[in-house]
Amino acid sequence: MSASLAPECNETKERYDNCFLKWYSEKYIRGTATNDECEPLFKQYKTCLSKALKERGIDQMLEDARADNKENDAEYMKLSAR
């Protein structure tokens, strides 16, 4: 997997990424996933990452980007014609 922008988060990130990839390939892609099993690991990684984003001043840039992406959410989160 890829590195984190914050080296101090690499360890928790790797644990989460491995969990996610396993869940995605074995459950999600087969349509048998009911919930995201890796959420506890994600929380650990996110705690580390959020701190790093704040320290680097990236959190504010992210807020702006999120606001820009609202239209995509509206379009791609709805059920597509099947």
Binding site: L5, A6, Y28
Partner: peptide, 18 residues
């Protein structure tokens, strides 16, 4: 040089993974 996941959500109704 780096790829970080910021958020991840599985929509219970549509099963769309965001």
């Amino acid at each position: 040089i780096a790829v970080d996941t910021l958020a991840r959500d599985l929509d219970a109704q549509t099963h769309i993974l965001r």
